[in-house]
Design a protein around this nucleic acid. Structure first.
Ligand code: SF4
Ligand code: SF4
Lengths: 136, 136
DNA sequence: ATAAACAGGACATAATTAGTCTTTTAGAGG
DNA sequence: CCTCTAAAAGACTAATTATGTCCTGTTTAT
């Protein structure tokens, strides 16, 4: 239960690698994929998602590649995970919608809300700077 | 990410219903399934798993059914969830095995260990007694 | 122009989820 | 002993999700 998918794991590895590079260093997808040991085509999809929401900036053509969208200390693990896995939802009933008719009376519901908050809180407090630290 | 499956949700609903009954009240699977709105054959599988590890006791034949295996205040939500969903593992690397070669140097690893601990802790502090409270 | 590199979409395969169905086993009652 | 009841067990199926690949297009530097 509650397992990060490979996509999520790859996403973290990829962007942490970027965060570990010198600022504004443009990196080739092929280099990142090799370095973090992820299929390049798969990582491409992941970085496209990052790019759309500005977590990374991409440059096409010769000399192109990827650069981190913001300073590493201003990107949290929560953002990275939610970018590719969607919101953290331990049970249907915490999506906000009328997903379960029992929500109003259910004693378990607040527990899941609590789990969601705690997990989000932990991930929100970790930045890419910390994750990229001393990769030497 | 991190979503409880229907099986897990059904498991909780089913055993909470049982916990809400008078002690030693034998309940028919068909009644439980109807009450908590779960396909009976599916719930059967779930209760078989409960039975194997003693969370419930089962009786066959006429007058048979299911009874809670221990007092509701001595069964935690964590036990119930892990019974049907397996251990709570937010990422492969916290299974204990040599699942990822980067574990020893990875800065993200301790974060997942932390997530696991926090979630387990929350679920372990909730008992069936609390979940079954005032179902009137 | 042309080659480098990312973007986007369609596709393929495997694994997991969410069940159903059928047969077997155990117990209660006549 | 016979039969009815109810759970146990295992085989099976359909739908969904995960995990990719492949092909074509677009942008950009030289
Ligand atoms: S925990 Fe309660 S509110 Fe949430 S899905 Fe289950 S029954 Fe519904
Ligand atoms: S978080 Fe780190 S240790 Fe865990 S699987 Fe990912 S790379 Fe490996």
């Amino acid at each position: 239960m509650m397992e990060l998918t490979r996509k999520g794991e790859y996403a973290i590895r990829g962007i942490v690698y970027l965060a570990a590079q010198p600022a504004e260093q443009v990196c080739l997808l092929s280099d990142i994929a090799t370095a973090v040991d992820v299929p390049q085509t798969f990582l491409a999809k992941i970085f496209q998602q990052f790019s759309k929401i500005g977590l990374v900036r991409s440059y096409r053509g010769t000399g192109g590649g990827f650069v981190l969208g913001r300073a590493p200390e201003r990107i949290t693990l929560l953002e990275v995970v939610e970018a590719v896995e969607g919101p953290i939802v331990p049970n249907r009933c915490v999506t906000g919608e009328g997903e379960c008719s029992r929500t109003s009376t259910c004693n378990a519901h607040p527990v899941w809300v609590n789990v969601q908050e705690q997990v989000r809180d932990i991930l929100a407090k970790v930045t890419l700077k910390e994750l990229a630290g001393n990769q030497d």
